[in-house]
């Protein structure tokens, strides 16, 4: 049997309590039950100046490329393009759109609200890697912290609650729905492998060679 949709219930309740933001998006419920999504940078612009959509799946076309036309594989990247608005029929359509803009964000948020979210430490994520990514586990603690600052704190809107860095204030302004990251993603693991390799090569270069 399917359980009652906790995710949709949580989202409906949040919409009933007024406007909120998620990542770079402003979500504004209207009195007639419709909900508008737009980029937060377009906050003060008249709706007529923005490209309007009523299909929540239009989010896919918006989220796929940045303003320069570059592919955005990491949807948490803080480079969502502006200039659009989604005029949606209600919570179901809002969920579809937000699942595209920030995949799994609502599900993770609902799990957190329900006390079901499992935070996975970085060491555990790296330890289970195999194949070419096995090497990522050799990254130094400082290398991992620096990578987290660069890749996660600067390069992603999600809050890496798996990190030992003080990230618990990120994205917690009054009307923000948190974008929680409970586990280092494959983008991080791939970068960790490169950092670990660079660290190894730097050590090999610094170490004195065998005597001739």
């Amino acid at each position: 049997m399917i359980a009652t949709s906790h995710i949709l219930t949580q989202l409906t309740n949040r919409l009933q309590s007024g406007p909120f933001s998620i990542g770079q998006i402003s979500v504004t419920p209207a009195s007639d039950g419709r909900v508008e999504l737009r980029h937060q940078d377009d906050g003060g612009r008249p709706g007529g100046e923005l490209e309007s959509f009523t299909d929540p799946c239009a989010a896919r076309g918006i989220a796929q490329y940045d303003a320069e036309g570059e592919y955005r594989p990491l949807k948490g990247s803080p480079n969502l393009k502006a200039g659009w608005r989604l005029d949606l029929a209600g919570p179901e359509e809002v969920r579809i759109a937000l699942d595209i803009f920030y995949p799994a964000a609502l599900a993770v948020w609902a799990a957190d609200c329900g006390g079901r979210l499992r935070v996975v430490p970085l060491s555990q994520t790296l330890e289970r890697q195999t194949g070419m990514y096995r090497y990522a586990r050799t990254i130094s603690p400082e290398g991992a912290r620096e990578l987290t600052r660069r890749q996660c704190l600067t390069g992603c809107s999600r809050r890496p609650i798996w990190s030992e860095l003080p990230v618990h204030e990120m994205g917690t302004s009054g009307d923000a729905l948190p974008l929680l990251c409970p586990e280092a993603c494959s983008f991080f693991v791939a970068e960790a492998r490169l950092v670990a390799k660079a660290e190894f090569e730097a050590k090999a270069t610094a170490a004195p060679g065998p005597a001739a």
Partner: peptide, 18 residues
């Protein structure tokens, strides 16, 4: 997805079906 979002490892949270 392996190389995109959502990742395989957090797919547990996506479903409410048993």
């Amino acid at each position: 997805f392996w190389k995109e979002e959502p990742g395989f490892s957090i797919s547990d949270y996506l479903f409410e079906s048993e």
